[in-house]
Design a protein around this nucleic acid. Structure first.
Length: 232
DNA sequence: CACCAGGCAAGTA
DNA sequence: TACTTGCATGGT
């Protein structure tokens, strides 16, 4: 049922037009914004908690919620599994959607504990495909959240697609309106080297650029992507 | 005041 | 399959 991507040899990535275009985009963004150093989390658990909390939510509000958890020593697998949904919901209030996110968080942490133990050891040793299927089986974890965890916690070379990516690629004529998450993911992964650090930085840069992108008409000339667009 | 923010699931047709 | 809606706070 899940679509399997054939294994690729990192060294045999074709030097395609699309690949060059994407690398140019990356270089422009990197030159403009510099390294982003995502994901801002001290532990894998904190990263996963942040991944759920940031769903459709400004990161600033996620930080408040995580700070609440930290200050009460709730940012451990056992503490999170022990607390009630209602109490957890109150702690993560600033992140919005707190009732549904409390359930989603609990689903994810319980799943991780059941499968990988309270220290999450073994989580980073599991195969990417199995990890991904497991994450997606959790109610509350969709493709973007699952891939974020794979990329930033498990450090696998998996490209994360978000709304900005859709918007930017579509506007630059590299994708159709109704392109799916997986189509865009393949667009990146089939044309770029299989490189976790590249994917990690690239996605973070897209989010950074996306915040000031396509909101203004006429085009925002300060956005580095505008230059990229004119050149290609 | 409106609109957005580092989505997902459930319901409907 | 392809839309629509609920979830909810805080910043601009």
């Amino acid at each position: 049922m899940k679509k399997k991507r054939p294994a690729r040899d990192p060294k045999s990535v074709p030097r395609t037009m699309t690949g060059q275009k994407l690398m140019d985009m990356f270089d422009l963004l990197y030159a403009h914004f510099g390294p982003q150093n995502w994901w801002p989390a001290e532990t894998d658990l904190e990263m996963m908690v942040g991944a759920v909390l940031t769903q459709n939510t400004n990161w600033k509000n996620v930080e408040r919620a995580i700070e609440n958890l930290k200050s009460k020593d709730l940012l451990t697998v056992n503490a999170l599994c022990s607390i009630s949904i209602e109490a957890l919901a109150q702690e993560i209030r600033p992140a919005g959607y707190y009732n549904i996110k409390a359930r989603r968080l609990m689903n994810l942490i319980q799943f991780m504990k059941d499968r990988y133990g309270e220290d999450l050891s073994g989580f980073s040793k599991d195969g990417t495909q199995k990890l991904r299927e497991g994450l997606l089986s959790v109610n509350g974890v969709g493709p973007e959240t699952a891939d974020s965890i794979l990329l930033y916690a498990a450090r696998r070379p998996v490209f994360v697609i978000d709304a900005y990516t859709h918007r930017i690629l579509k506007r630059h004529g590299m994708s159709e309106d109704q392109a799916t998450y997986y189509e865009l993911q393949e667009l990146f992964m089939d044309h770029l080297p299989e490189d976790q650090e590249l994917y990690s930085e690239f996605h973070a840069l897209i989010v950074q650029a996306g915040k000031n992108y396509c909101k203004r008409k006429p085009l925002c000339l300060e956005c580095p992507l505008e230059k990229w667009e004119r050149e290609f």
